[in-house]
């Protein structure tokens, strides 16, 4: 019973060590609070476009994106209720006209909307003969592309692989720069944010 106290310090060091680990974890977690979890790289880049059949908006038949392989394809998701879609509409129609006959296809996917308001939108804001307007039945195309809101535009290379994505209204210069880069085989910015995505 007369053993002198032994302060080996092991317990203290273990406690201090665990405390330090906790502080480091805490600091890392706290650091992550500043990151907007919405601003993640898209998981879609580098993947093949989903194989979904989409009925045409204003004519019979349906479009499958795989049928467009060999072309560079712009897939734009839009709706009549989406204000950002009005902002970008002219740029898309103009670009579709400018690239007609250049192995570039434009597909406008009417997402989360009915045919009638969609057609009314095109009557009001104009349509391009070079654009294939299709319906997104059951939102299957939107889900397959991981659409998080409107407007969203995807660029497919000649093999049908998604190489670029623009979240928010797209501009004419952005369309031209991206298409020219893909046409000459340059790398494009995988994801560009231009504004808030809208949901109904």
């Amino acid at each position: 019973m007369t053993t002198p106290p032994q302060r080996s310090g092991l317990g203290t060091w273990v406690t201090v060590g665990i405390g330090l680990v906790v502080i480091v974890f805490g600091a890392v977690f706290a650091g992550r609070f500043n990151r907007d979890p919405d601003m993640v790289a898209s998981p879609m880049i580098g993947r093949p476009a989903p194989a979904v059949a989409m009925p045409y908006l204003e004519k019979d038949g349906e479009l499958v994106l795989a049928d467009l392989q060999g072309d560079i394809v712009v897939v734009n998701f839009w709706a009549s209720w989406c204000t950002g879609c009005r902002t970008e509409h002219e740029a898309l129609v103009t670009a579709a006209g400018a690239y007609a006959g250049s192995d570039v296809s434009f597909v406008g996917v009417l997402h989360q909307d009915r045919a009638q308001p969609g057609i009314g939108f095109l009557d009001e804001f104009g349509r391009s003969a070079s654009f294939a307007y299709v319906m997104d039945e059951g939102s299957k195309a939107g889900i397959g592309f991981g659409v998080l809101g409107l407007p969203q535009t995807f660029f497919l290379d000649r093999s049908g692989t998604i190489v670029g994505q623009v979240n928010g209204p797209i501009s004419f210069s952005m369309l031209v720069n991206t298409l020219d880069a893909i046409l000459v085989g340059r790398r494009v910015d995988p994801v560009t944010e231009t504004g808030d995505l809208e949901n109904r």
Binding site: T3, Q6, I18
Partner: peptide, 19 residues
């Protein structure tokens, strides 16, 4: 880890304070 650290800190005092 927090629980282990807390237990060590509370009980460690008892262990060190021998006769």
């Amino acid at each position: 880890l927090l629980l282990v650290a807390g237990i060590l800190a509370v009980l460690g005092r008892r262990v060190r304070a021998g006769p």
